[in-house]
Design a binder for these strands. Structure first.
Lengths: 237, 237
DNA sequence: CGCCCGCAAAACATCGAGAATTTCCTAAAG
DNA sequence: CTTTAGGAAATTCTCGATGTTTTGCGGGCG
């Protein structure tokens, strides 16, 4: 009955095992772009950086390779998955496929609690979007919470899991392109369109709005990369 | 220049590293149903069975857990993912989503070589389907070759990868339900419908035929399980 | 009679060292 | 000057052993 006053298991943010810890750290660093695409992941190096033994590190890297964040070149170690235009487009395309299907399901099956959570998440996000100064971390969290709330009603665990992975793969591209000045864009309006359609239980419209939203995100990211290529190595190394 | 006469790397079927080997063995045994759903996977046990050290085994299990064939209950080891009606339906649903999208792409982009390969694969499969006595292994290979050929034109590596995993997850259910007498069913006709539509480049019709085919496969599998539940433990040991 | 505590055995997760392989550098041959 | 061969250094992969956590069992207390 958890009379101890300590938080119940499951809500705890602290990973239980070294492997889980390593997995979370590596995944986070790859998505955040701190580990750059194509980088060789030498176990000895990582061992020093994270202060974790080789065995848990290798296990974490194995999981990440199945997730598509790392490639394992048998007998030649691991490296961060490279980025490419094609890859971003591929991820985007599949993400739209998965996300719209999950959203359709969520809209059809979401109950009152789903609605309430969605309203709350949208409210918080809107408030942050209206602010002048943008705390990226905070806003990213709110953005994720909003998208999670949208899909919370989805009855398919598989769709949820796939979406989560694809979302993070996409997020990596966004983070890598982040430092450059973003193309002006009315994100709030895109969010509002999805939100309105979802609350009205108009799945068709919500999916279309989602498609537009995800495509725009990709296009902005692609633009940043293209511009970065024209201006060679200004921020490199 | 490989003057040794040995086959060049890449064509070799033999896994290069112990981890890869363990991964292939475990995956195969799980899909074939030799490792039953819910079974605890004790490393010491596996070590004896496969004659592979604990470290490569754990790495393989980690990868399998990311693939969804194994669950990792932190600090309490690994076990084969359990089966359930809900899970089979979930897998089927997502598989249809992925497979029809991949097929649509394949039909739109497949070139002459794609067509030729498809014709050949269909021809071989038809011949086996017409036979009286059925070698399951052989037929399964032909079936897989046919489905692979259908999707070979798909331009999205991600869709291909996801489909491969989902196909094998589905296959596990089929294999587990295998011993029981199958419901009579004209599989050949279903295959023919997909094949004809694909060659005519009618994506819409091919996708619909695929949907029907996959749904039927699931329903037959579900029927077998339901019947097995009514007749308790006749073949169980 | 049932519940709970605590000890022993099993299993898991992790570490450090040792075999196998790749990579890198040097130097000679064409 | 490019190419090829050889060997040393670095790195990956694997094993056996060790600390920690979970599990299973038995005895005592309510």
């Amino acid at each position: 009955m958890n009379l101890s006053g300590r938080p119940v298991a499951g809500s705890a943010p602290k990973p239980r095992t070294r492997t889980d810890h390593a997995y979370a750290l590596l995944r986070g660093d790859i998505i955040a772009g701190r580990l750059k695409p194509g980088t060789k992941l030498r176990v000895e190096q990582l061992r020093a950086d994270y202060d974790i033994g080789a065995t848990p590190l290798r296990e974490a890297l194995s999981r990440l390779s199945a997730d598509g964040f790392v490639i394992s070149e048998g007998q030649r170690g691991f490296r961060v998955v490279p980025i490419s235009y094609d890859d971003l487009q591929d991820i985007t395309r599949v993400r739209i496929l998965i996300e719209t299907e999950a959203l359709r399901d969520s809209i059809e099956n979401g109950d009152d609690a789903w609605e309430a959570r969605l309203v709350a998440a949208y409210y918080r996000l809107s408030k942050l979007e209206a602010q002048e100064e943008q705390d990226y971390e905070q806003r990213e969290r709110a953005n994720e919470a909003f998208h999670d709330a949208l899909l919370a009603g989805c009855t398919s665990p598989l769709l949820r899991r796939l979406h989560h992975t694809l979302y993070d793969q996409h997020k990596r591209y966004r983070n890598i392109s982040l430092m450059n000045p973003a193309v002006p864009r009315d994100v709030h309006e895109e969010h509002r369109a999805i939100y309105d359609a979802a609350l009205e239980r108009d799945a068709q419209r919500a999916c279309e709005a989602t498609r537009v939203h995800v495509m725009r995100t990709m296009e902005v990211t692609l633009d940043v990369f293209r511009k970065a290529e024209e201006t060679p190595t200004s921020t490199a190394d």
